[in-house]
Simulated assay, not measured.
Amino acid sequence: MDEITDEAEAVRRPAGDAESSRANRMWWDRNADEYQKDHGEFLGDARFVWCPEGLDEEEARLLAPAGALAGAAVLEIGAGAAQCSRWLAAQGARPVALDLAHRQLQHALRIGDGLGGSAEVPAFPLVEADARALPFADGSFDLACSAFGALPFVADPERVLREVRRVLRPGGRWVFSVTHPLRWALPDEPGREGLAVLSSYFDRTPYVEEDAQGRTVYVEHHRTLGDRVRDVVGAGFRLVDLVEPEWPEWNQQVWGGWSPLRGRLIPGTAIFVCERD
């Protein structure tokens, strides 16, 4: 769920793991204020929404059945302002919210301070770290989740998946949402111009933004649906479900290339439900 800076020039070219991590840390630090201003109302302060379609964990229960979160240690990766973790805490879980960007976590502190702390939404740890090297011991968590966090922005997603598996206990569930791979063949436009195939779905060349000096300021990586499945299995997970949320009638918002027009015709999000054997 990205924002694009007006000053940046978009190109398609190779981009490695270190370059991607450095650029995206800087991008999210720079754009966190605008992101939270534009999308904070939709995301809520303590709501677990998986995607711009508005699929809510309160209803979907992809991570755990109702009542099963109490006492569970949950890692949220790419937490942003930790809205999902706040909802998890209200369900009795013990979340840890991890993000690469310092400014995003400052927004998490701002929202938490604004709520004042309560029995309904207990406090929880915020961790600034790279998902490629999670700073936790093996088997630290019962569950892990990510709503558009980390995975679209790394050159080697299987490295992140292996780290998630390492910190999960046997039988732990890992659920993550990403831009639906089909979207990469289409322009990132919410109107009818966004319904025509522009490039090859099979072209995995990263999307890169560069500033006027040619410095990399944003990177996003494309994986086909098959690539994502192979990454999951290769990292040692079992794929339990693949959810492609349909656009609901109540949702009239436009979020980047997501819109009611496109959402009722093509999938915009893919959610992978995985378990660690």
Results as ranks from 00 to 15, higher is better:
Leu115His: 06
Ile266Thr: 13
Ala89Ile: 12
Pro52Met: 03
Pro135Gln: 05
Leu109Asp: 13
Trp255Tyr: 12
Gly214Pro: 14
Glu275His: 03
Gly80Trp: 00
Arg103Ile: 03
Phe141Leu: 09
Val164Lys: 05
Asp17Asn: 15
Asn251Gln: 06
Ala10His: 13
Ala93Asp: 01
Phe141Glu: 04
Gly54Leu: 02
Arg230Ala: 09
Val154Leu: 13
Ala150Val: 05
Asp156His: 05
Ala90Val: 07
Arg61Leu: 01
Asp188Leu: 14
Met1Ser: 10
Leu151His: 00
Val175Thr: 09
Trp28Gly: 03
Trp50Phe: 04
Gly78Tyr: 07
Arg47Met: 02
Trp50Pro: 06
Pro122Val: 07
Glu9Leu: 15
Ala123Lys: 11
Asn251Asp: 14
Val164Ile: 12
Thr216His: 15
Phe176Trp: 11
Asp56Gly: 14
Val219Gly: 14
Cys51Tyr: 04
Ala15Asn: 04
Thr179Ile: 15
Leu115Thr: 02
Tyr207Thr: 13
Ala70Met: 10
Val219Ala: 11
Arg165Tyr: 06
Pro52His: 01
Arg166Met: 04
His107Asn: 13
Leu168Asn: 00
Asp29Glu: 10
Val49Phe: 01
Arg230Trp: 04
Glu7Gly: 05
Arg276Asn: 11
Leu115Arg: 12
Asp227Lys: 09
Ala123Thr: 14
Ser20Thr: 13
Ala133Thr: 12
Pro267Gln: 04
Ala18His: 09
Val233Asp: 05
Asp56Trp: 11
Val217Tyr: 12
Phe42Pro: 06
Ala8Lys: 03
Ile77Lys: 08
Ala93Tyr: 11
Gly80Ala: 00
Glu7Val: 06
Gly54Phe: 04
Tyr201Gln: 04
Phe237Thr: 07
Tyr201Arg: 10
Arg159Ala: 14
Arg204Pro: 01
Gly234Thr: 08
Arg228Phe: 09
Glu189Lys: 12
Val74Thr: 09
Arg12His: 15
Tyr218Met: 09
Asn24Glu: 06
Gly194Pro: 15
Pro95Asp: 06
Glu210Met: 13
Ala72Gln: 15
Gly256Leu: 00
Leu198Ala: 15
Gly263Met: 14
Asp231Tyr: 09
Leu63Lys: 14
Ala70Gln: 11
Gln36Ala: 11
Pro125Gly: 02
Asp130Gly: 04
Asp203Arg: 07
Gly139Cys: 02
Ser140Asn: 07
Glu3Met: 13
Ser20Pro: 09
Leu186Phe: 05
Leu109Trp: 06
Glu7Arg: 08
Leu168Val: 00
Leu261Gln: 14
Gly214Ile: 15
Ala64Pro: 08
Arg94Gly: 08
Asp156Ile: 05
Trp28Lys: 05
Val74Gly: 00
Arg166Trp: 11
Trp258Phe: 15
Val127Asp: 11
Arg22Asp: 08
Val164Asp: 04
Arg238Tyr: 15
Gly149Pro: 07
Ala82Leu: 08
Leu69Phe: 10
Gly234Leu: 07
Glu189Cys: 03
Leu126Pro: 01
His221Ile: 14
Val11Asn: 01
Asp6Glu: 15
Pro181Cys: 07
Leu88His: 06
Ala150Gly: 02
